[in-house]
């Protein structure tokens, strides 16, 4: 999985591509933790993420919780249907802010 980081004003955008699974999710966890200390608004561009495993969900959940705890926002955008299905099944749709 590739992670591209762009920071504008107070918004940090991570553009992801590939699979978010057991192997790659620690990278996202690290990137999120780093971004969390500098940006108030975090956007995750999921336009090129085709698969999210439970480990990936865990990182998203962690990010969401950390953001909420520190009064920041984490938003997912451009989520593909197959990934959206996973979010739907797992109930993440109700938790995550997806636009």
């Amino acid at each position: 999985m590739e992670i591209k980081k762009t920071i504008t004003d107070y918004t940090g955008v991570l553009t992801l591509s590939g699979r978010l699974d057991t192997v790659t999710s620690p990278k996202l966890q690290e990137a999120l933790a780093e971004l969390m200390s500098s940006s108030d608004k975090i956007e995750l561009d999921f336009s090129e993420i085709g698969y999210v495993s439970s480990a990936g969900l865990r990182v998203l959940l962690l990010g969401h919780k950390n953001a909420s705890a520190s009064g920041k926002t984490m938003t997912l955008k451009n989520v593909l249907p197959e990934v959206m299905e996973v979010f739907e099944i797992t109930g993440f749709l109700d938790i995550l802010t997806i636009i």
């Binding site: 959940l61 099944i89 797992t90 109930g91 749709l93 109700d94 938790i95």
Partner: peptide, 9 residues
């Protein structure tokens, strides 16, 4: 109907 995972919230 989908519901949230366990241990999430």
């Amino acid at each position: 109907k989908p519901s949230l995972i366990l241990a999430g919230f």
